[in-house]
Every structure is written in C-alpha cells, then in structure tokens.
Simulated scan of single mutants.
Amino acid sequence: MKKVLFILGELTDDDIDWMIAISTQERVLAGTTLIREGQLIDALYIIIDGTFTVSVQALGDKEVAHLSSGEVVGEMSFVDERPPSATVTAAVESLVLSIPREELATKLQQDIGFASRFYRALAIFLSDRLRGTVSRLSSGREPSAEERTAQENSLAPNIRDNLALGNTRFDWLLRRLRGMNAQTLE
C-alpha cells in the first residue's frame, strides 16, 4: 500500500494544491543518497517514481526496507526535528517531490485546519508503519499479499474510505506533475 495515501486521504484538494505549489520535483540518480543517517534534512519527500533502499549504520549498514512510488520519506525527522535514524539511497533513477521543511512548518503554524489534517494523517501513517514493523519483527518475515490485504481490511471504515480517496488524489497528483513536466519541456 502506498503510504502517502494516508496523508492525501486526510488532506483537502486545496491542501494538496498548496503542497504542489511550494514543492519541487527532484530527479535522484541511482546510488545517490537522498537522506543520510545523522544529518539534518530540510525537506519532506514523496517518492513519485523509483525505488530507494533504507539502511541503518547500527546494523552494519544493513538494508532494512525498500521504498517505492507513493512512500513518504523524512517524516520522522520532520515531526521530532531530530536527524534521521536511517540512510535512504536511490536504488534506481528516481523522482521525488521535495516539500521544504520551513514552508511546511510555517503553513502548519498559520493554518490550524491544515495542521489538524496533516498531523492526523501523519499519526495514522506512523501508526500503520509501526504496526507493520511489529508484525515483521514478530514473524521474522515480510507479510504476504493476503496478510497485507487483511491488515488493510482491519482499518477503521473511515480510514479505509480515506485511503480510496488518497489513491484517487495520488493518481491526480501524478497526472498534474506530468502535465507540469510537459509544459516545462515545451
């Protein structure tokens, strides 16, 4: 499941328009580190296309996860303002939407409605991520497709509905970004 769906499902169309307006698209070449463990970052990222590996130094730079289109990166450091606890590296040439930390923080301070929706979305997202981590640690393996579907079906009905809305908005976001790229090339 694309994790950005939790966020896009909670935000309004106007919120998403604002995020697109203040963000930039960044092409990340294969092998390039997007986030380095222990070094502060100045953006929140949404993976538009591509694949990233996540590794942790304390585990001997062991890869602990793979992230792809629709994943959010840098959210923990955004919330707690601490350096990242892992390194995120492009496995293939990738495209991310980079949302500047300062502008996002200012919007959260100035727009209480946006802040409420955004932080609720992050709480749901982080809760889902933690449940997935606990599940993997307890079973010692990645969940099967059937197990992932069962996990999604166990979500509260309003969250499941928002995921469907988030999926529609992610597809809309991709079409909009592609349109912006086509205009830039002209």
Rank of each mutant, 00 (worst) to 15 (best):
E186F: 12
W18P: 03
T12C: 04
T184F: 10
S154E: 13
Q25W: 01
E81C: 06
R160P: 04
T53M: 03
G70N: 08
V73E: 01
G113V: 10
A65R: 06
E102W: 02
I41A: 05
F52L: 02
I16L: 12
M19H: 01
S127P: 02
W172Y: 11
R117K: 09
D42C: 00
F125L: 15
G9L: 04
Q25I: 10
V73C: 11
L34S: 03
D17A: 11
L185S: 13
T184D: 11
L177M: 10
A43R: 07
V64N: 01
V134H: 11
V64I: 14
R82F: 08
R176S: 15
G50N: 02
L5D: 14
F125W: 11
I46Q: 00
R131N: 10
Q110A: 11
A65M: 08
D171N: 14
A105T: 13
D80M: 05
R136L: 04
Q183D: 14
A182S: 10
L174Y: 05
L34M: 01
W18H: 14
L34V: 05
E152S: 12
G166Y: 06
R136I: 02
L44C: 10
I41P: 00
N158I: 11
E93N: 15
A156R: 08
R178I: 02
G179V: 02
A90N: 03
A145K: 11
L122Y: 08
V79A: 10
K2N: 12
D15E: 06
D42S: 13
L130P: 03
R36K: 14
P143T: 07
P157Y: 01
G50W: 00
L8I: 05
R36G: 05
E37P: 09
R129G: 12
R160K: 13
